[in-house]
Design a protein around this nucleic acid. Sequence first.
DNA 1: GCCATGGCTAGTA
DNA 2: GCCATGGCTAGTA
Length: 109
Amino acid sequence: MNREHKSVTQLAPFTAEVVQILKEIPPGYVVTYGQVARMAGSPRAARQVVRILHSMSEKYGLPWHRVVNAKGEIAVPNNDSREVQRLLLEAEGVSFTKDGRVDLARFEK
DNA sequence: GCCATGGCTAGTA
DNA sequence: GCCATGGCTAGTA
């Protein structure tokens, strides 16, 4: 251990912070990628949040479905996953507008 | 090089 | 529709 060596289980600080924040999102609550980035102290790192969600959701049991883009749209590329995300949110009581968006104003507080 | 953004402009109607 | 953004990781040497 006298050389640079990262344990596989050791997350980088920013990543660990984001993972923690995501884990604390309660059922029925929705946040945006940008909001999570801001909460983690790096306002412009929204895409990084995306990357974390994309690659670590399964392993860390992250509530990936509770994160949408700034417009309130489901932003997952895969069609099946999009459907799953919507169903999971609806099951938690989240409603959608006619154009398929989450009413984010509802969560501002 | 990845990535599921975000915010600003151009251009249509 | 365009494109700057950012923190990390895979993969090479």
